[in-house]
Design a protein around this nucleic acid. Structure first.
Lengths: 211, 211
DNA sequence: GATGTTAACTTAACAATGTTAATTTTATTT
DNA sequence: AAATAAAATTAACATTGTTAAGTTAACATC
């Protein structure tokens, strides 16, 4: 109800309020419940008020993505403190999968839904920041194994390895999220599939003991 | 314009006409152009006529999926004639990826979009049919390598292997389709990533030569 | 202190879309 | 020729994203 001026802090608070409630709608009522009017109802404003803070619905979704990217990176950060490089890499994969399967709607929005390309301006996230960029974290983790001489001698491109590991874990999680309840396939338990994939990756990537 | 009765064959032709034009819209104008009215315009009928043949839009999309599943299986079928089991498995993965990347919109609809669980009645596709069921084909391909003693001796679950291979290839393709144009990641060329993944799978799954 | 200005917000309204109801058209049957 | 019913269309509704047109109230200015 209060009209006149608004501090930058207050505007930021409102933005956050919008994003948080939109994220809530995801989790509690599913992705199709995220309408501008529904978000507005939650925060006690009219739907059009959202347009005072976001250009359009896509912008709201992108902001949610940003929040989730940050949350993912924050979640994974503590794994980085594991000492052994290989154990760290394994735990990183497990942590990533755990996040994906715990928040499937968010994961779908983040990594399974087409968005306009991110532009540096629109996002507050800092690339190549170990606190905020989960992909950068993965690169570091993989690079550390590489630096420790853990990979097979013919493997030289740590970034390629990182992208392949990501794809491997993503593949298991993405199929699980989309197709788990489809009985066309006699799915093995998701934990089994995940550890099988990890196993394969390790056995394909890591140096043999006698090498 | 012709009204009265309609043979079963004619009804089937109309169904097919609807599906084909809806698929066309995907490819030419993108996924958001697939509206009931747009489909109708294409086939020269009114939008509501589609409801005489399909329960709702979801049903149209599911029918498109079915067509695409069949097309995928048909595409992959010729690979099954490759003699060497391992070469066949490799080619199968390549063929699958080729399909995914050639028809990203279809692939997204098939494997990256949530649908209601398939029920045997709604679909004409025959499960466990080597001509129509690409997953069954994959199972066979993997099983043949298993039967030929190609896998490491500790691997016993061919279906789990099949699901893991699927996830691996799917992961690479899915990330490519969604995130390729995102410059957050310095993507290696897609061919490089695909063959890296195949390499890793093979080296993790296949028996060593000296074993 | 009245008046005007402007940010913040709301209500009206529009266009697009999925979908249903009512209506029209017309081939076949009687 | 009239009746019937399938096939199709037009009208119409609800929902949604979004824009345009008001409305409200804090502040500045006279």
């Amino acid at each position: 109800m209060p009209p006149k001026p608004k501090t930058e802090q207050e505007r930021e608070q409102l933005r956050t309020l919008i994003i948080d409630n939109a994220r809530d709608l995801f989790v509690s009522k599913g992705i199709e419940a995220v309408t501008m009017r529904e978000i507005a109802k939650r925060i006690g404003y009219s739907a059009t008020s959202i347009y005072l803070h976001f250009a359009d619905k896509e912008a709201v979704l992108r902001a949610i993505c940003d929040t989730d990217f940050l949350k993912l990176a924050t979640t994974l950060k503590e794994i980085l403190s594991i000492e052994d490089p290989v154990a760290r890499m394994v735990a990183f994969g497990e942590g990533y999968a755990k996040f994906a399967l715990a928040f499937p709607n968010h994961y779908r929005l983040m990594f399974m839904t087409p968005h306009l390309p991110y532009s540096q301006e629109q996002s507050d996230l800092q690339r190549n920041n170990a606190e905020q960029d989960a992909y950068f974290q993965l690169k570091m983790v993989v690079h550390d194994v590489y630096a420790a001489g853990g990979f097979k001698s013919e493997l030289h491109d740590a970034e390629l390895i990182a992208q392949t590991i990501w794809a491997a874990i993503h593949g298991v999680c993405a199929l699980q999220i989309i197709m788990a309840q489809d009985d066309w396939v006699e799915w093995r338990p998701i934990d089994t599939r995940l550890s099988m994939m990890q196993q394969l990756m390790l056995s394909g990537l890591l140096k043999e003991k006698n090498e």
